[in-house]
């Protein structure tokens, strides 16, 4: 599953992430991170047998964990199905379906935001 992790100023100097990797049997992949001494956030993918235990541990240590089903969301009213985004996706998460609709596979999406900044009608938004 994918989740946003939010760090407050008080915990940026703690090594919570390396702790969970040592303590739990998990697969942990950082997709995106923006953390400064004033806090910040990280988009991660957490899987494995002890994923939920690791989340409880992070929450205990003060990290706000928000699991997300979708990394990005496409506004179907704004989308013109032009397909400008399709060739820009670095992980091939965007495809043109048989009926020429544009589909974003949120399983593959890593939240890089390139489609968002390149959309002519600003139809794609990051789910935060």
């Amino acid at each position: 599953m994918k989740a946003w992790l939010r760090f407050s100023t008080s915990i940026v100097n703690k090594s919570v992430i390396s702790d969970i990797m040592k303590l739990f049997d998990i697969d942990f992949n950082i997709l995106k991170a923006d953390i400064t001494p004033r806090g910040g956030k990280m988009l991660v993918e957490i899987d494995g047998p002890q994923a939920s235990e690791s989340i409880s541990y992070m929450e205990d240590k003060g990290i706000e964990v928000t699991p997300i089903l979708k990394v990005v969301k496409k506004d179907t009213d704004k989308c013109l199905e032009c397909g400008a985004c399709v060739s820009l996706c670095p992980v091939e998460a965007i495809s043109i379906l048989d009926d020429w609709d544009i589909d974003i596979d949120n399983q593959k999406c890593i939240g890089c935001g390139f489609c968002i900044s390149s959309c002519p009608t600003q139809a794609i938004a990051l789910m935060e």
């Binding site: 397909g83 399709v86 043109i96």
Partner: peptide
């Protein structure tokens, strides 16, 4: 959706909506 340029497969984007053209 794919085209070869200099021996490499490159993704393509339409820019005009075929769905709406139909």
């Amino acid at each position: 959706g794919k085209i070869e340029i200099n021996g490499r497969e490159v993704p393509t984007s339409p820019l005009s909506s075929y769905k709406r053209a139909v």
